[in-house]
Design a protein around this nucleic acid. Structure first.
Length: 205
DNA sequence: TAATGGATGTTCT
DNA sequence: GAACATCCATTAT
């Protein structure tokens, strides 16, 4: 019983795999943020994979830079970036060290600390609390200070096992290149996914 | 319900 | 100077 918390954690081996597989596998798992000893958490319902130097939509497409450096590092770490002058986006690094890859966390179904998330967001509709990558980080109070955090050992931000969900896929949201890859994954029928709708129809795996 | 544009800053050409 | 892994309010349909 005393190991209940840690035993449910996703281990590093989970993240050291082919990135689209990790992105799919994260659906149904729990993302947990601990603030002042309180748990804010939700079930992951939407993710996107960004992989390798051959993926034109990836930040690592043009090689290593100060910003994307963490993508080249070991798996299971937080890669966070600031975008559009306003929002933070949370990724978890994947694949063995040296392969630039990560999974973007795009939406959660809020479970624990819903009241706190409402305060952080200034929104009451639970369906919108963590729908979209910028909203997700705002709800969980995630910013650059958590960049590089080891999510396999952190006490502030980590993943827990969950139940398998029915998975659908589409092209990634908000990217103009790399449209041939359908590396956005989401829980089919979930009202908690972000509004970004793909141009291609959905399929399931 | 769909399209548009503003807020805002970092990165790259 | 343009593009950008965004979000929301406003406007048009």
């Amino acid at each position: 019983l005393k190991n209940q918390g840690t035993s449910r954690r996703l281990p590093r081996s989970f993240f050291q795999r082919y990135t689209p597989t990790v992105a799919k596998g994260l659906l149904g798992c729990r993302l947990v943020r601990v603030i002042d000893g309180k748990r804010l958490s939700g079930i992951i319902v939407e993710t996107e994979a960004y992989r390798g130097s051959g993926d034109p939509a990836s930040h690592a497409f043009r090689g290593r830079t100060p910003r994307n450096e963490l993508m080249f590092g070991p798996p299971g770490h937080a890669y966070i970036y600031f975008t559009m002058g306003m929002h933070y986006c949370l990724n978890v690094t994947t694949e063995p060290e040296g392969i630039p890859a990560a999974v973007l966390l795009r939406a959660l179904q809020p479970i624990e600390g819903v009241e706190a998330m409402m305060e952080n967001r200034g929104v009451k509709d639970v369906r919108r609390l963590a729908a979209g990558p910028g909203n997700l980080t705002k709800a969980l109070r995630i910013d650059m200070r958590l960049g590089g955090e080891d999510l396999c050992s952190s006490e502030r931000l980590f993943f827990e096992h969950g139940e398998a969900l029915r998975v659908a896929s589409s092209a990634r949201v908000g990217v103009s290149s790399g449209r041939t890859r359908r590396w956005r994954f989401y829980a089919e029928g979930s009202p908690f996914v972000s509004k970004g709708r793909p141009s291609w129809p959905t399929t399931h795996n």
